[in-house]
């Protein structure tokens, strides 16, 4: 599977209150949450993204609370992939569990500009920047997480164990 979309850059230390402020945590519906995605960064931020666009975070993306509503809001906004310098650890686990593709690339994050057109292959971790012609390889997904992914995610993993 290859994801193609336009890059939308946000800064370092983007916290979960920026992704989805607590006042919107009165629902678990990804579509409802998606409409308020990044409302804590800028009002109406979500209007700038099209379905399939790719989010580019800086250092420590998703720091703060454990709210799973954060990856759900990003998915609900139509964003299937987040590429970041690094991720906060709770967000990283949540993203995987929700089926949001997360790629960590360290300092190579500077090679992606806002509005660049990207192609991402999560299987190989390859990111093609069509606007600059550069290819970036992301850090490998930890082995155990890859196994859970291969089983269809944590829900399926548990389903198999309890049945």
């Amino acid at each position: 599977m290859i994801f193609a979309g336009k890059a939308h850059k946000v800064g370092d230390h983007i916290d979960t209150d920026a992704i989805i402020p607590a006042r919107f945590l009165v629902t678990s519906d990804p579509f409802e949450l998606g409409r308020k995605c990044f409302e804590g960064l800028e009002q109406g931020w979500v209007n700038r993204v099209k379905k399939g666009d790719i989010l580019i975070g800086g250092k420590n993306f998703g720091c703060g609370s454990s709210r799973e509503h954060a990856p759900l809001a990003i998915l609900g906004a139509g964003i299937p992939v987040v590429i970041a310098h690094s991720f906060a650890r709770i967000f990283y686990r949540n993203g995987f569990n929700m089926g949001l593709v997360l790629l960590e690339i360290g300092d190579y994050i500077d090679k992606i500009r806002d509005q660049d057109q990207l192609e991402v292959s999560p299987g190989t971790g390859e990111i093609r920047n069509l606007s600059t012609g550069q290819i970036i390889n992301s850090l490998p997904v930890p082995e155990f997480m890859a196994e859970i992914l291969a089983m269809g995610g944590l829900v399926n993993y548990v389903r198999e164990k309890v049945s």
Partner: peptide, 14 residues
């Protein structure tokens, strides 16, 4: 340590 809801659901089950 803190985790998301689905990790917690897994821990509640297992």
């Amino acid at each position: 340590t803190g985790m998301g809801s689905t990790d917690i659901a897994a821990a509640m089950a297992l």
